[in-house]
Design a binder for these strands. Structure first.
Lengths: 211, 211
DNA sequence: CACATAATTGAATGATCGTTCAATTATCTA
DNA sequence: TAGATAATTGAACGATCATTCAATTATGTG
């Protein structure tokens, strides 16, 4: 009854992981200190070492957490994407998937950007090397089917598909800063539509070349 | 004759600035220590404070150096760009400028990415707020002239123009890792061409909508 | 040559870094 | 309830952080 109780080990672990995530996402690995994480989690600094080993392992665990969220996200339905027989649908879905995922998981995008600048043996990647190859094969297939212009290197086309959806998040934070939720949502939809239309109009087989 | 001579103050300053640039570009602000810079420049640590005040001011000086390189770069000829009366030329030149500049100044891209993640009162920006407004006005002008689809928010179109040329540098470092100089150069040209064609084909007035 | 100025040095500052550890406290198990 | 186990604490470690400063050395000026 009057015996002091303490939070479960699991909840402590979770608090540390959550705080670490907050700190790492905001300040990166080098910019985050163990003491800052402990303060954010409101626990004793030594507990981090007891539960996670050291800073590096905690960093990896945060990344794994985010990676699991990615794989559990219905937003990026990989299997469904690969069954699409129509190239336009494929591209349209891919762009929507990619935009939607990073829109709903801004932490993931930020971690990816951090580890682009702060290289780490454990790389959090949205796509495995295999899945990248699968997509590129798919692009080649659509090129053979003449649903997609064969003019360009499929890797470059993939690179374009990867980049375009992220433009909204990278440029113009001022533009979106003072918008209401409805306005922001509308702007996002418009951007996705712009992306899809841009790619489809240019890369289909009968598009005219301007060069 | 036998009197000992020491390097000029200017050359010391230059050595520090160069070393700081190397370190900051690679590891960012938080990841770079004054001692690391001193070691890289092969000078005494205290000299950094004598010549630059403190770490923050050195960081700003590095950014200003890079910004000056940008403004002195004939690669981004702002005035010429704004005289172009033809929308296709305008977009084509803009994309070529942007790709070319970051291709020739990878440090600049990296610093911009660092300060995106590590916010700083002094922001190194490729474009001033005024020049951004100038470009957006230009896009609106082309929309009025019906050289450009009016379907989309001009800010979003600009966002797309900003993003697309950078895709080559951000994704797929594996793809370009083992290429010869000729192969790499060819791939770059192909990517720029892909970007230009993508935007032009989709955003001109008579393009068909896929949505 | 003498003197002022500026550049350079090396040692020291207190703060904070990541990490360890022995001691304490709560929980689980027999 | 006793003893083992696990969670938690606070103090301490050496290393490194950014920064300061007095002393030294070279350079420029009269």
């Amino acid at each position: 009854m009057t015996t002091p109780t303490r939070p479960s080990a699991d909840s402590t672990r979770a608090a540390i992981l959550s705080a670490a995530r907050t700190c790492f996402v905001e300040k990166g690995f080098a910019g985050t200190s163990i003491s800052a994480i402990a303060k954010e989690a409101q626990i004793n600094q030594s507990l981090i070492y007891h539960h996670f080993g050291n800073k590096q392992e905690l960093w990896v665990d945060v990344k794994i957490t985010i990676l699991e969220e990615y794989h559990n996200s219905q937003n990026m339905n990989w299997d469904k994407l690969l069954t699409l027989k129509n190239c336009d649908e494929f591209i349209s879905e891919f762009i929507q998937y990619r935009f939607g995922f990073f829109d709903q998981h801004p932490d993931a995008l930020r971690i990816i950007e951090w580890q682009y600048l702060e290289p780490d043996p454990f790389q959090l990647t949205a796509y495995t090397p295999e899945s990248i190859q699968t997509i590129i094969k798919r692009i080649k297939y659509f090129q053979k089917q003449k649903q997609l212009s064969s003019k360009y290197n499929p890797e470059l086309i993939f690179s374009l598909l990867l980049t375009i959806p992220l433009g909204f998040f990278r440029s113009f934070r001022d533009l979106t800063a003072n918008l209401s939720k409805q306005q922001l949502s509308k702007l996002k939809k418009e951007y996705v539509q712009l992306c899809i239309e841009t790619v489809l109009n240019s890369l289909n087989e009968n598009s005219t070349s301007y060069l």
